[in-house]
Design a protein around this nucleic acid. Sequence first.
DNA 1: TATGAATGAGGATTCATTCAT
DNA 2: CATGAATGAATCCTCATTCAT
Lengths: 199, 199, 199, 199
Amino acid sequence: MAQRRSKGAERELAVVTAAAELIGEQGLASLRMADVAERAGMSVGHVTYYFPSKTELLIRAIRQSEEQFQSDVTAALARHIDPWSRLVTLVELAAAEGPRDPGWLLWFEVWASAAVDESVAEVQAQLEGWWRGQMADVISYGIERSAFRADHPERVGSVLSALTDGLSVQLALGDGTTTRDDLLDLVLSTARDLLKVAR
Amino acid sequence: MAQRRSKGAERELAVVTAAAELIGEQGLASLRMADVAERAGMSVGHVTYYFPSKTELLIRAIRQSEEQFQSDVTAALARHIDPWSRLVTLVELAAAEGPRDPGWLLWFEVWASAAVDESVAEVQAQLEGWWRGQMADVISYGIERSAFRADHPERVGSVLSALTDGLSVQLALGDGTTTRDDLLDLVLSTARDLLKVAR
Amino acid sequence: MAQRRSKGAERELAVVTAAAELIGEQGLASLRMADVAERAGMSVGHVTYYFPSKTELLIRAIRQSEEQFQSDVTAALARHIDPWSRLVTLVELAAAEGPRDPGWLLWFEVWASAAVDESVAEVQAQLEGWWRGQMADVISYGIERSAFRADHPERVGSVLSALTDGLSVQLALGDGTTTRDDLLDLVLSTARDLLKVAR
Amino acid sequence: MAQRRSKGAERELAVVTAAAELIGEQGLASLRMADVAERAGMSVGHVTYYFPSKTELLIRAIRQSEEQFQSDVTAALARHIDPWSRLVTLVELAAAEGPRDPGWLLWFEVWASAAVDESVAEVQAQLEGWWRGQMADVISYGIERSAFRADHPERVGSVLSALTDGLSVQLALGDGTTTRDDLLDLVLSTARDLLKVAR
DNA sequence: TATGAATGAGGATTCATTCAT
DNA sequence: CATGAATGAATCCTCATTCAT
């Protein structure tokens, strides 16, 4: 039965989720195996039983967090047919929710680690590629339906995804200047400009 | 005499520089006081003499790195009168040099730490503000001279700085897809679009 | 039926054999219950079912290894009537095969453990006694048949067994200087001298 | 001044000595860095400051123990001119003192470790070579002075050193059968036989 | 019998920080 | 100012042993 089979997987998931949460809350540097274990509701030794090393755990945490994001995106896009709505949806999902968005804080740690750890870099590159691919797909989709117009669609995709990232950093670090509405407004108005979308 | 007075300051600077370099090369997590001391050419004990705590050292390293950036920017901008040249110069200085750009890797660590440490967040906010202010100033300068045209200049400034940041992340993490030329090209062509700059 | 009855014993033997092999290969310090279980083809939990403690397992492994040796010796001696042939056979069976002889490496661990653990010491003493007893018996046997001549036969037995041990250590540790042929040659020529055996 | 210079060396020696003692008393398996530190009168962290790893410490302990042995031997031999006295002296120094002789228990650990760890094997081989070399030298010395007679002096050397080792094992493990007097008696009477020494 | 997930005590190692010199 | 030996708290990881199934 599925329940049986998933018993181990459930506990493993609990560890990964706990780790992702803790990194998003306190940063990777202060992540203790003991804290992860406590939050996951099991012994320290058992966390090690699932994840031989801390790095392994980080990678799984990233993957887990990203799989969640990807399935959210996929589900959300499926609910929209209008290209502009799809674009808006994508940006809304990707953008930081607000200051100290744990998902984004996790990403900062990923960037810092990727710069130093090859295996993290690999995962990061893969996920980054997926996210930019989604943006490119939405734009192509809009162009096909004549909703968008652009000489270099893939360039516009790069710009919009990078812009969303850059503004999310500002928002997540909460300098107070940028709000989530500002972010969406800036990204989408830039998109309108670059994609020649009629208001 | 200046030499007398600066002797201590020089050694202190050596420590800060060493720290900034090491963080850019190996990441903050693996920064050891002993390594800093070695690179700075002094004993561990003496590094502690200057910087009682590791956090203190990190903050000084960020500041130092940023002061360098700021004086570089100021000097470079002074060499240009043409608004577009100033904009190009600013982007060129801010953008990542290429994969594993130590300056940007340091920056990733700052983001990750700022999310967790209030004092780092303060410094980060301050520097982020300065950088966006420079962008805004250059744009205003161009508008004053009728070289640029924009309904919401401050918004364009936000977009261009965030875009530079977002693309620099991609470049610094070296997924290979993005080159420095791509980055400059994307930022500057977006600038042309948004600022209605004639070619 | 024998098969029924021996099923458990067989599995138990597999564990003991696996342990003896692993100690001979990697040393006692790095002996893991998990490795023993894997090699014995069963789960960790089940190994514990047979051997409640690791020490228990070690003692059984020694005994097992020694019982093997004893039955080999007994069988081999039975094939010879000539006293000198018996002596040669005994030395050949006891001596190390060559560098890293697993049987001897196990023996080193036994010595080290016996020095510290009373129960291991007991087993060791018992087996050491058996081995020297065999040597003494062979010598007495030779004297009875007038093949050997010695004033203090038990002393010669001690010398020959100790000599075999001492040379086996050198051979097993593989300093390269001593070969198995050297070993046999030295022991047997000493035996000839001490037992006045004509060539 | 020598006192100044040796301050660090003294403390390092204290660690090595403590380790050698503890191994001789309790065995390598139960050697704890904490115990070593305590006996050496310093903190655990400081032991690591001198010896990065436990293996490193073991090797130094062996070396230290052996250097002591070597200088004892050298000094003792110098006090004798008569070849037979030299031989007796050598055997007396090398042979185990009695049951649980810590020096010999340390050797058992060395043998067990050498079988598994290359760096330990190296040291062991070196020291083993030295010891057999001394025996060979004493024999040659006796032959030169016509005190000993042997067709293959180097073979006799091998036999006598191996015999001393083999009997010392028995004595150190304290099966009770063998006493130190027995040991000396057996080795020396064998020597008399093999070297044709007149009583 | 048999499994293997789960535990938790135990120990090595790291490293910022202190302080006598 | 400068050193570097010394400390000890902090934490990861190992692994024998237990136990529900």
